[in-house]
């Protein structure tokens, strides 16, 4: 158990809902769900969810902390926003799903080797270097995510697409060498820092006395 996880378990004891409200982005909306199930039915990836959003919300209210945070369900969200558009109660479901995933990751409870999580981490790491996403590096890092053999296999499979992109100048092989960055890199860092501060402040605000 990570320290943060231990701390949270202690702090919120039997109110997982309060924990979610305090720590998960848009978590304060979870209580507003009326269990109609339209989000669960509207999700194009619905069949791949162990627990659809509306059920996750009920599980949160029922205090099923481990089951929710260790679930891979919210990692299934592709941000199509169908659920938000349809929700009769205005719940920002997409954001809550991402918030839950993020929180699970922070606590170290997210399922190991969850592909979406891995991708997200790689995306983030990639982004942090120059302030821009280096698509070539991101792509390759993804192909080789599960080892060298797997990486070569995937690269060969994607060969034609890669070549096509090179020919049409959609991809620059020179990007391999560090790649170009945003104009104001320190400004970018400052921005990220500020965002992190804001997030921390938001979480602090919810902390129960």
């Amino acid at each position: 158990m990570t320290d943060l996880n231990k701390q949270m378990v202690e702090q919120y004891r039997n109110s997982f809902l309060k924990e979610v409200e305090a720590n998960v982005e848009e978590g304060e909306w979870v209580k507003m769900c009326m269990q109609c199930g339209v989000c669960s039915g509207s999700c194009p990836l619905g069949p791949y969810w162990d627990h659809p959003p509306q059920e996750l919300f009920m599980m949160i209210r029922a205090g099923k902390r481990e089951e929710v945070l260790a679930s891979s369900s919210m990692w299934m969200c592709t941000s199509c926003y169908n659920c938000i558009a349809r929700c009769p109660r205005e719940l920002p479901i997409t954001h809550i799903m991402h918030g839950l995933a993020h929180y699970a990751k922070r606590l170290g409870l997210a399922p190991k080797n969850q592909p979406t999580m891995k991708f997200s981490q790689k995306f983030w790491d990639n982004l942090m270097v120059t302030g821009r996403v280096n698509e070539l590096k991101l792509g390759l890092s993804l192909y080789f995510m599960n080892g060298l053999v797997e990486g070569i296999k995937t690269s060969l499979k994607m060969k034609n697409i890669g070549l096509g992109m090179l020919l049409t100048k959609r991809m620059n092989p020179m990007e391999m060498l560090g790649g170009h960055s945003v104009k104001d890199k320190s400004g970018f860092k400052a921005m990220i820092k500020k965002a992190q501060e804001l997030e921390a402040a938001r979480i602090a605000k919810f902390k129960t006395p």
Binding site: C36, G37, V38, S40, G41, Q54, E55
Partner: peptide
């Protein structure tokens, strides 16, 4: 069925198909 259906589609015979999740 306790559910707010997500959407309705139609099959080739013109039958409406109700899609959703029984909660």
């Amino acid at each position: 069925i306790k559910s707010k259906p997500a959407n309705i589609t139609q099959d080739k015979d013109g039958n409406p198909i109700v899609n959703g999740v029984n909660t």
